[in-house]
Nucleic acid binder design. Sequence first.
DNA 1: GCCAACGTTGGC
DNA 2: GCCAACGTTGGC
Length: 152
Amino acid sequence: MNYWLMKSEPDAFSIDDLAQRPDQTEHWDGVRNYQARNMMRDAMTPGDQVFFYHSNCAVPGIVGIAEVAREAYPDFTAFDPDSQYFDAKSNVAQPTWFMVDVRFVRKLTRTLTLQELKAKPELADLALVRRGNRLSIMPVSAGQWAFVLSLE
DNA sequence: GCCAACGTTGGC
DNA sequence: GCCAACGTTGGC
């Protein structure tokens, strides 16, 4: 079992949006970064646990838990010329981009803010708090996972 | 809205 | 293959 952190802008797709989807499950489309793609495609397994992080908003932080519901499959938005995620270089025979499905598990009792997470020496190696980090999907160690949950 | 950080693109 | 220009991310 692996642990991850996935960022989403709540104005576009929030933890509450996920909770309201049919089966509380949604595909995680639109990832257009090779590192993030590789983690989804090569390492994510159904059952993996995910911190749901709200970015680019008033109080950025971890707001809930989700889990990987389906292993990686081609991101079909890359094939749709009308999609904002269209990529002419990706095609069905050899897709460039992949996505997983994620299922809502629960909201945290409170937001664990970026500010708070940054202040914890135990999380100094977490990619989220490293300077200049822009990855939208990143691995979390078992130790980091447990520590974050202990803050709740 | 500003801007630092970083990835991508494209000229050479 | 280098690297300047450009676009995007995302905190503040």
